[in-house]
Design a protein around this nucleic acid. Structure first.
Length: 424
RNA sequence: GGAGAGGUGCUCGAGUGGUUGAAGAGGCACGCCUGGAAAGCGUGUAUACCUUUGCGGGUAUCGAGGGUUCGAAUCCCUCUCUCUCCGCCA
């Protein structure tokens, strides 16, 4: 969440930024927050004064007893008891106002970076890097990946329905091997780029989901295990970033680079139709995530690095891709800047989102209490993450783009991982 | 799941109601000493918030939350986590 001190010092910029993210009534909301905060401060000051008195009186009681002045002590006790009513009252008021204030702050999204274009829908996203070479053109007999899957027995969605429900693919044979190969390939790429590999829990508690911003904003998107009060992770970002919750890092340790493979679980309620067919949108998919924690002065350099990293992987997979700079309306709640990667899926003649790289600046670290020592001072670090990469749609594009009369050709870079060079 | 023992600062560890935000030791930082180093000596070494132009002052925090009390790291309750033994188990 945003820091109150930042909101206070930059009211106009904050309101303007929230406007770009299409937050309705931003000015009113900020005014309300600041007003609550003023009240909070006033009550806190009052309370602390009373507590100071109470502490002093209590010390005095102890001294009187030691000196044998029992009557004096009793007299002071009466005074303290009078104070206690007032402090109890103020404590309730303060507790409530702090809760209200937090509630409001949790609903305020991060401010967009200056370079973020205005806009409301994906149509307003800006093409940051387009695909200049020719797009693959397939023969008339080319199939979408869901038909290829049937033809070569690679994954089975109906079977997933039987076992679990819609949106839970069952990969099999070479389809399963291809999944494993991609995961391994992506992990190797990340580790070679200096990321520490993490294998985290797939369920997280409420504190973790809140710290990275999924709660309360995206509560309905996560699978929830009520009996144990745990959430299935929608991305490895959640457990991995939370490794550093409540941590104060040595500045020399920045940037911290971590990566991890996990399945991702998303409820994605209420979507039907051709554009979500096959692997285009599923409830469970595999993804390798890269996470960095950076010094605020360097986080945009780190961001560029991450963009390069993802670009390289796509190039090695020989997939046509483009990079979009998301507009204010299409960005996630917690992000300050997001670039999406889309690959071209020739069987469907569509661009599919396969990666999203974001800089959250201090939005997550404020909730996480993730700081670093800048001399004697501790400051909030910047957090960034990106998919490198999400599998399901990569698989869709690979199958479709590489289909030939002789089968599906595996890109060279992947062959060492799959152990086969074509699916036929 | 059952029984027991515990959770104190960067680490170890003392502390069962009153100048204890916390002894002592270690680590670390800085200074003195030294040709340099070690040893030795000295100083410093949590976080958040409120207040103050600043120096500073204050409040809270000894797993978490509540209670008792003039006063709680210390007493009581609930929760949680760790360890040991038993049970179950990939």
């Amino acid at each position: 969440m945003l820091q109150i001190s930042v909101i206070r010092q930059n009211q106009l910029e904050v309101i303007e930024g929230l406007g770009k993210k299409n937050v309705p009534d931003a000015a009113e909301k900020i005014a309300e927050i600041l007003q609550l905060d003023d009240q909070r401060k006033q009550w806190r000051t009052e309370l602390e004064k009373l507590l100071t008195d109470r502490n002093q009186f209590s010390d005095e009681v102890g001294k009187r007893y030691k000196e044998g002045d029992k009557e004096g002590a009793e007299a002071i006790k009466v005074k303290v008891n009078a104070l206690k009513d007032k402090t109890a009252e103020l404590e309730v008021l303060l507790g409530n106002i702090e809760k209200d204030l937090d509630g409001l702050l949790y609903l305020i999204p991060n401010l967009p970076h200056a370079s973020v274009p205005p806009g409301k829908t994906p149509d307003d996203n800006e093409e940051y890097q387009s695909w200049t070479a020719e797009l693959p053109v397939l023969s008339e007999h080319a199939l979408p990946h869901w038909d290829l899957a049937k033809k070569y027995n690679l994954f089975d969605l109906e079977l997933g329905v039987k076992i679990t429900g819609s949106g839970f693919p069952v990969y099999r044979g070479k389809g399963a091997k291809l999944q494993r190969a991609l995961i391994q390939f992506f992990l190797d790429e990340a580790v070679n780029a200096g990321y520490e590999e993490i294998m985290p829990p797939l369920l997280v508690n409420e504190a973790s989901a809140t710290a990275t911003g999924q709660l309360p904003d995206k509560e309905g998107q996560m699978y929830y295990v009520a009996k144990d009060d745990l959430y299935l992770i929608p991305t490895a970002e959640v457990p991995i970033t939370n490794i550093l919750r409540d941590v104060i890092l040595d500045a020399a340790k920045l940037p911290v680079k971590m990566c991890g493979y996990t399945p991702c679980f998303r409820r994605e309620a209420g979507s039907y139709g051709a554009h979500v067919r096959g692997l285009n949108r599923v409830h469970q998919f595999d993804k390798v995530e890269i996470v960095q924690v950076a010094h605020p002065d360097q986080s945009y350099q780190v961001f560029d690095q991450m963009i390069q990293h993802v670009s390289q992987i796509l190039a090695k997979l020989e997939l046509p891709y483009r990079i979009l700079r998301l507009c204010g309306g299409d960005m996630s709640f917690a992000s300050a800047l997001t670039f999406d990667f889309e690959v071209y899926s020739a069987g469907q003649k569509r661009w599919l989102e396969v990666s999203s790289v974001s800089n959250f600046e201090t939005f997550q670290s404020n909730r996480l209490k993730l700081r670093f020592k800048d001399g004697k001072q501790s400051r909030l670090a910047h957090t960034l993450n990106g998919s490198a990469l999400a599998l399901a749609r990569i698989v869709a594009a690979l199958l479709e783009n590489n289909q030939t009369a002789e089968g599906i050709i595996i890109p060279k870079a992947l062959i060492p991982y799959t152990g086969f060079d074509r699916i036929s």
